[in-house]
Every structure is written in structure tokens, then in C-alpha cells.
Amino acid sequence: MSLGPEASITEETTPTADAAEVRSPGESAIAGRSLKQIAWRRLKKDKVAIGGACVVLFLILIAILAPVLTKLFGHPIDEWHPDQVDPTFATPVHPWGGITSDFIFGVEPTTGRDIFSRIVYGAQTSLTVAFLSAFLSTILGVLFGTAAGFLGGWVDSMISRVMDFLLAFPQLLFSIALVSVLPQEFLGLGSRWSRVSVLVLVIGFFGWPYIGRIVRGQTLSLREREFVEAARSLGARSPRILFRELLPNLAAPILVYTTLIIPTNILTEAALSFLGVGIPPPNPSWGGMLSDAVTFYSIDPMFMIIPGGMIFITVLAFNLFGDGLRDALDPKAR
């Protein structure tokens, strides 16, 4: 190994602690460690990243348990509670956005719907869209990125051209436009899940060049390394080199950039819902709630702060975890 990455590892962790761990009682000699083990060790020490990961896990749990949580602590998402809102001003009767022991996050102005239930279901939508579209971007990005980097020639110049083109594109505008021409309901999925799939397709499609570019670059440099040459001289064919030699080495950057694209996707989904082309009402989404809050934020700021705060916490948690993961897997790239 070269000296470069080694030097920056010791920068982050105190040398003494590291040395002590290397010669822990169980190990007699300096054991060779896989990248996975090294990264896990580094990640465990990064308290901020672990904190981010905990919040992410907590949010995923909330999204999965949404129906249960709503039953336990909330009210059905579409149940109106006119008694909770002031008939003349349409604002919640109780202070702080109508927070009471019964409505723990308060109620919506006008309708009096339970904000807690809508936040919990919004988490479900938001995370589903973010994860699935990140997954789609990754698959496309890895497919085209490795193809471009490995095959080279006209394939590379074609794919690179398309990636440059997509990156130099009014993306948000296009997403809005594309989402609005695609049908509201299809395949009998119902309005909520049809829109979720449309959002996944659109967000996932515009996201792949980011991963594709990185994968291409990495493949280009890996292709020239000695171990690939060695495999080839031993008679390995292209598919074997691609899957057994190159892809395992690409796993780290792919994992990092997939993690880092998730918060971006959450923001894009919320933005589209905020602009009224995302998840259609009355289905709950954080962006949609913020857009409803535009009319009320001057008199009922809690209605805006709760969904906005949720977006902030979620995105921040993913960013912290993603940054930590990147530092752990590749301390040089910073």
C-alpha cells in the first residue's frame, strides 16, 4: 500500500489507541484486516456518524411502524377534528399549534387533522421514495459507469456525452414537467403509490449520472492496475474481471455515494410535493404539509416548523452518516 492513505488514517485516530488495538490480547501478531474491518473500526469511533445512523434507523422504524404508531398515539390521517380549530380564524384552539396530550404534534389549521399521524405517514412516503430512487440511480449509474470505464472507445464517449448532457439540464424544472404529464394513477396502484413510483422513476433517473461519473472514473483507474493485468494474464475473461476483480473494488465508493444521494432525494421529493406535483393530497407528505403551511405560517408557525424540522433532521442525519461512511471507507477523499 502506498503511504498516502496510511498517513491520513493516523491523522484521524490517535496513534496510541490504534497501536493498542492492533496488539489486543487475542491476537498474537499484527493481523491483516479487510477494508470492511478497517472501515467498521473507524466508523465505530466516529460518534457523529453513529449518531446520524441511529437517527436514520429510528426514522426507518417509524416509517415501518406508521400504522401502529398512528393507532397508539394519534388519530386516523384523514379524520377531521373541527372542535380543535377556531371557527373564525381556522387556527388551532390550543396554543403552540394545538399541541395537547391527545394531539402530541398539534393539529392542522382549518381541518384539525392530527399532525403526528401525518408526519409519521409522511416519513413512510419520504423514505420509500428516497431509498428506491437511490437504488435505481445506483443500478443505472453502476451499469453505465462500468460499461463506459471498462469498454472505453465509442461506448465511453456516448455514455459520457449523455451524462454530461443530463447534468447540464434544468433538472428540477424537468422533473416537475415530467411528473405532471405522467398519469395520476396506473397499474391499479392507487393515487399514493402510483405517484410514489413516478417520483422514484423521475428522481432515480436524474440521479444516475452522479454515481455513473464516479464509477466510470474509478473503473478507468482500476482497469490499469496490476491485479487486473495479473488476472488477465492468468486467462480471466472480461466478465470475470468485471465481476470478480473490479466490482468488489468499486463497492466502497458505490456505497458511499448511494448513501449521500438519499438526502438529496428526500429534498427533491419534498420540493416536488411542496410545489404541488409530488404526492397528491389528501395523502400526507412533508413537502405537501409545508406547502399547506404557506397560508398559515404567519399566524400558526408550528404547522410549518414541524414538517420542516422533520425534513431537516432526516436530511442532516443521512448527511452525517454518509460523511462518516466516506471518511471511514476512503479517508483520502475528503
Binding site: 404557506v294 405560517y297 410549518m304 436530511v315 442532516l316 452525517l320
Partner: peptide
């Protein structure tokens, strides 16, 4: 800066208006 990149404008914009205008 990390907080800044995690805050969408459709939230900070409303928040800033609520605070500084209202």
C-alpha cells in the same frame, strides 16, 4: 455549513419570513 446543506429553501424561506417579517 452542514446544517445549511440540510435545510431546504422552502423551509428556511418560510422560517425567515415568519421571524423577520411577522
Amino acid at each position: 455549513a452542514l446544517a445549511g446543506v440540510s435545510l431546504p429553501i422552502y423551509f428556511t424561506g418560510l422560517l425567515a419570513s415568519a421571524i423577520f417579517i411577522y
